[in-house]
Design a protein around this nucleic acid. Structure first.
Ligand SMILES: [Mn+2]
Ligand SMILES: [Mn+2]
Ligand SMILES: [Mn+2]
Ligand SMILES: [Mn+2]
Lengths: 222, 222
DNA sequence: ACGTATTTTTAGGCTAGTCTAAAAATATTA
DNA sequence: TAATATTTTTAGACTAGCCTAAAAATACGT
């Protein structure tokens, strides 16, 4: 027992973690299939194997949650993913829209010593380039209190602290609009018609932002 | 066609490259099996598939060599392996005996941009922590003229530039004896009895070195 | 050159992981 | 609550990669 997991098995654990993270309810077979871009039948297959290894709690037709050893592995993957993303942006000067795909590969490198030394080399960062918290070596996250830009009232000054989507086109688009981590925003107007909002960015330019974008940006009041 | 290769396929190409590097003759099925710690039947299987993809020249019963596209992939793997080894020693302070295993994983990360930026970040190193040359992005090696310590005549001053084995115990042993890259050696005596030699290290200590060790250390006259 | 030893390939089977199609269970709606 | 819709599981098949055992090809010694 306790032989190293395949990248595939690791990806299932990570997906289940993320699906259960918010709601705390079990994840459905279909949700997992959707998250991993695979089919429900393949998921059922894998759930049986992961349950066999005591990494998940799986009840037929009732969904899946992680056991504590499953959660340990999942958080370690997220930790590695986010630390590598910091490495790629801070040390190799990649843009925040380029790092996710490479980190998807790097997160599967197996060496705790490597992870810990990388963390030290990066000066123990607490957040990744997208503003997501980096768990410590015990798997504890430092969650930040944050709200969606879409839920912020008018005339409140806020600062961008994160995004809820990591896909390249979205991040490139934000970059273009100067909507990067740390940017200061004030909502000037909200349009009923299409739920878009008018925001002032860094006390200089003023931009119209679609509802879709506003729902994917996390901000903090200052 | 030209879909990305699996790590397994990449490892076969790397092994074939190394087997053909010195001798220039085709590698035998058994040699490949030995190098990859697998069975001859599995090798035959894979050789058929790699030949199908035009990555190797394979003639039944006659052995295998790389095609030029096979060689491109193999050298890219070696390039990545050695650059990561430099990263691990120079930036993360790993010992030269700890890096090989981790680099075996890292060499399969797919991103040319990553490799090239890593190379720049490391200031374009020409040799890895074991003294092996790092090919450039076109796959060209800068070979060094070097001889085995075992073949050096008495009383010649030489400097350690490389090792021909990367296994942890061997490298740890060298470390213990202060036989690290850059150490200056002079052979004082050679013993017929067991082919061991007596060497002065860095003009200070004098050590007896077994024939086995002396055959795995590369040196340069100075 | 011929018989023996070695090397290599073939044959057939195994596991992990994937898929589609069909069956079974659960949820929804009238 | 009974019919229908949705979700999930099962059944069966496929590929990559690996294995052992047997057959075929090649190399070697006398
Ligand atoms: Mn990411
Ligand atoms: Mn991220
Ligand atoms: Mn190495
Ligand atoms: Mn090396």
């Amino acid at each position: 027992m306790n032989q190293p997991l395949s990248s595939t098995e690791e990806n299932y654990l990570k997906a289940i973690f993320k699906l259960c993270e918010q709601s705390d309810k079990p994840a459905s077979t279909n949700d997992v299939a959707l998250a991993l871009n695979t089919r429900a039948a393949s998921v059922t297959d894998m759930l049986k194997r992961l349950a066999e290894k005591s990494l998940i709690n799986y009840v037929k037709y009732k969904g899946v949650t992680l056991t504590s050893s499953g959660r340990t592995i999942a958080t370690s993957l997220i930790r590695k993913h986010r630390l590598w993303e910091v490495f790629l942006t801070d040390k190799l000067n990649f843009g925040w829209e380029e790092v996710h795909e490479i980190a998807e590969q790097l997160e599967h490198i197996k060496s705790n010593e490597l992870t810990n030394r990388l963390e030290a080399f990066l000066n123990f960062p607490k957040y990744d380039p997208h503003g997501d918290p980096i768990p410590d070596s015990d798997g504890n996250f430092q969650y930040r209190q944050q709200v969606l830009l879409a839920d912020v009232p008018l005339h409140t000054e806020v600062i961008i602290v994160g995004v809820s989507e990591h896909e390249t086109p979205f991040l490139q688009y934000l970059e273009k609009l100067n909507l990067i981590l740390g940017a200061k925003l004030v909502i000037q107007e909200s349009f009923e018609y299409d739920q878009s909002i008018l925001v002032t960015i860094n006390q200089s330019t003023t931009q119209n932002i679609s509802a879709k974008v506003a729902k994917n940006i996390y901000v903090q009041k200052i």
